[in-house]
Write a protein that binds this DNA or RNA. Structure first.
Lengths: 147, 147
DNA sequence: CGCTATTTGCAACCTTGTTGCAAATAGCGG
DNA sequence: CCGCTATTTGCAACAAGGTTGCAAATAGCG
């Protein structure tokens, strides 16, 4: 979720944003939010832990802070290709409509820019939150085509 | 992977297919293959374990059988939205064109009949094997709509 | 400054997945 | 049909990632 221009990443402003969702602006939350604001890519729990300096924040507290960020809508959580949870600031990119190509050879995922698929009809009672076109096959490299 | 007409799912034929890749046709492998053949959707390790009856097959053996199936090309492995590994028979279903709906509430997956999205342009050297439209949101039950 | 609900840290625990090794066995040749 | 050996299985132990309960610390109110 590359969103390189967060609204404001000063500690004071972050504290403000935290209080805005009705919670206490604690050092732990501010520091984690600062990190996420500065990160060009989604961070894993481990990334955050080591960026803060191991032991500087309890492992469990970090899990709770990250989950709280997601629950309060300040961050979003998604699994990467290696099934590691990664967190990034919310709001940034609704991510528009785009497709993923998954290579069955090397397992890498490529993002393709392409028009959104037309929203399909759903059974009654179902609500749609997200739609993704997932393609799979073999990438150029796995097909032996040089980059 | 709803492919309801697997090449052949009789135990004898599955044993044949296992020997064809140069390995021993053991009960564990045959039973797991049978399950995957019959499954309309990719199964998790846990799904298989409980379908076989807990304890009927050692936990570790099942991990090994599943990984062996993937290594030998009989099955494919992929992570679902909840980061759970799911296994399905390889090759079997070109799967036609249809979409999956993933409920973010209960985690269930529903198959929707719908026309295939038009095949998008791929970068040079890439080959397309499969295309799936993956929708997510909340199912009727999780929305409180009675069946 | 004092109070209380919210957060934190800790210790223990669960789940998922892996490793090493001894016992069982598929499938070969006789 | 029988024995043999490489392959599989089951077990026990371990490791990473994640969760829970509870007592101690503290943000932010008046």
């Amino acid at each position: 979720m590359p969103e390189h221009i967060p609204p404001s990443s000063s500690a004071a402003n972050l504290a403000e944003r935290i209080r805005a969702v009705g919670a206490r602006a604690t050092p732990a939350r501010i520091r984690v939010l600062e990190l996420l604001s500065a990160a060009p890519l989604p961070l894993s729990h481990h990334d955050v832990e080591s960026a803060l300096g191991a032991g500087s924040l309890d492992r469990v507290t970090l899990y709770r802070v990250l989950d709280w960020l997601v629950a309060s809508g300040l961050a979003v959580k998604g699994a990467d290709e290696r099934r590691v949870w990664r967190f990034s600031l919310a709001g940034g990119g609704t991510h528009g409509s785009h497709a993923h190509f998954h290579c069955e050879g090397c397992g890498r995922v490529f993002c393709l820019d392409m028009p959104a698929p037309s929203p399909p009809p759903l059974p009654g009672g179902f609500t749609l939150l997200r739609a993704a076109l997932d393609l799979s096959g073999r990438c150029a490299q796995c097909n032996g085509v040089p980059a």
